[in-house]
């Protein structure tokens, strides 16, 4: 964040943070703690944080505006769960903005030309 994106943050910028952890995996917990510091940086600048967090993590919801919880899983499997709230967010934002959800403009399903 400090390398650039911090400059964008104000009260009108929603920031989605993936702040999950596998409590049994020290490397995962360490990364989680670093992410919490990043979240503090955003909220200190009035940014609005939506956190994707692990079930049982009650602490994080006091730091952020919204928390979307996913079930616990080993670190390497977490992406399969984390992506689901992100998909739903993308979907509902697109619907609200009146986008063609199933066929976004200028795109094709399979890019079979260079």
């Amino acid at each position: 964040m400090k390398h650039g994106p911090n400059a964008l943050i104000d009260e009108s910028l929603p920031v989605v943070c993936i702040a999950t952890k596998d409590p049994d995996d020290p490397a995962s917990v360490l990364k989680y703690e670093k992410t919490l510091s990043n979240i503090q940086e955003v909220t200190a600048r009035a940014g609005r944080v939506i956190a994707i967090a692990t079930e049982g993590d009650d602490e994080i919801s006091s730091l952020v505006e919204h928390t979307l919880y996913i079930p616990r899983a080993p670190e390497l499997l977490l992406p399969i769960l984390e992506v689901v709230p992100l998909q739903l967010l993308a979907y509902h934002i697109a619907v609200r903005r009146g986008c063609d959800v199933d066929q976004p403009r200028n795109l094709a399903k399979s890019v079979t030309v260079e």
Partner: peptide, 15 residues
């Protein structure tokens, strides 16, 4: 989760 995401989507739409 779906309902929660719908709610949060408002934030992005408006903000």
């Amino acid at each position: 989760l779906d309902e929660q995401c719908q709610h949060i989507a408002r934030l992005f739409h408006a903000a």
